[in-house]
Amino acid sequence: MKPKVAIVAAGSGSGETGGAERFFVGLRDALQALDLDVTLLYTPSNESDFDAVKESYLRFYDLDLSAYDGVITSKAPSYLVRHPNHVCYLQHTMRVFYDMFEVEFGKGSEELFEQRALIHTLDTAALRAPRTRKIFAIGEEVAQRLRQFNGLDAEVIRHPTSLSGFREGPFRHLFMPGRLHRWKRVDLAIDAMRHVKAPVELIISGTGEDAERFKERAAGDPRIRFTGWVSDEDLIGYYRDSLAVLFMPRNEDLGLITYEAFLSGKPVLTCADSGEPSRVVEDGVTGFVTEADPAAIAARIDQLAANPALAGTMGQKGKQVAAEVTWEKVAVALATALGLPFRRPSGDAPETDGSGADARPSAASA
């Protein structure tokens, strides 16, 4: 009988396809490819106010997962689950109570500091052994944050995008996909365009809370175009025909946009304080890493616009980088940490936790 694994996802399970949904589907498919019986469990999580946050934490704590041999969680508050064989592949904690606390709340208040302290206490207790057998992180940015705020270590394994069908095309426009939210700093790209001398268009796709604010900021610049939501087919098309992809968030956890650009043979422009993208992009090799300064960004845009061959060379090197990041590596690491026997897609013999024995606990002990 195949080992039964539950991936516990914090979300709505509404059927809408976004980055988080692609993450869980990619992880599920990769584990199934190892001949594991995998169930994706969406459980509601509400962050509209602090009472809702506490209710969400309790909801995951109360889940009955005794039918499974192993459990994998990712972002807050899913890792509050109770199971004797639990590993966490951490996407992120609730960042408003971590690195983005001052960005969102300024100096804060006594109540907000109490809320933050409670979240830190709960997260640390939930992620510490033995409640969590092992922690993996999707990037160095997440692992660093975990060490800083929770005093815990994590093994870093980056994962690829689950979107497919990327193609290489001409170097025509600048492209900035993603959520239109202040943390993504779309305004930085808009401001950079005021300094760009080349006759190049900036296409911005996606929706989000700050869409109207960004559109107002870009008003009057005919070179900036907002598309709103786009289909996967159109998204791939915009990547295909881009000169470069702009991705300049603040302290990003991973940022699959970087890998999607690379798979399309395109360089990425990011910033030194953008988190994981600034680690993935090698400055001058697979793109440019600049200061978060509109003029500095514009200078690199003009450099690529004047030399599309350079953009092509960078894109090809980025493609090599993206090829090294696979879902199989992620799945093998997680299955090994759970001590579950598995079979690689190549058809190799079943593998275990390295001890030569099946280390999984029985479902009855869960």
Rank of each mutant, 00 (worst) to 15 (best):
G287P: 07
E168V: 07
T17F: 04
L256K: 08
A333N: 08
G139S: 15
A323H: 05
T124C: 03
L310Q: 14
T39R: 12
A244R: 03
E351Y: 04
E209L: 11
G255C: 08
K266D: 03
W229A: 14
P345N: 12
K2G: 02
G18D: 13
A309G: 01
V186A: 14
Y79C: 01
W183V: 15
L41C: 05
Q32L: 04
L40M: 03
A129D: 04
I135P: 01
K184Q: 14
E260N: 05
Q144P: 00
L254T: 09
A363H: 04
D358R: 03
R250W: 15
A219R: 15
K197G: 11
A76L: 01
V156H: 03
A261V: 10
R213N: 06
V81L: 02
M176R: 11
K329I: 02
P277D: 05
A137I: 01
T124I: 00
G165L: 02
M100R: 14
T313F: 05
V321S: 06
E155D: 08
Q316F: 02
G284K: 08
V156D: 00
M1D: 12
V321M: 08
M193V: 09
Q91L: 13
Y238D: 11
D51F: 07
Q303Y: 09
R22N: 05
F24M: 01
L188K: 10
E55S: 10
N251V: 11
F113R: 11
L254S: 08
V289Q: 10
P350H: 06
D37L: 10
P84T: 12
I138N: 14
G312I: 04
T290I: 10
S109K: 13
K329T: 15
P308H: 12
I224Y: 08
F136G: 01
P170M: 02
G312H: 04
S74R: 00
G11E: 03
R133H: 08
P222W: 09
L163G: 00
G255P: 02
F175A: 01
T352A: 05
E141F: 05
I297L: 15
E233W: 07
R213K: 13
A211I: 06
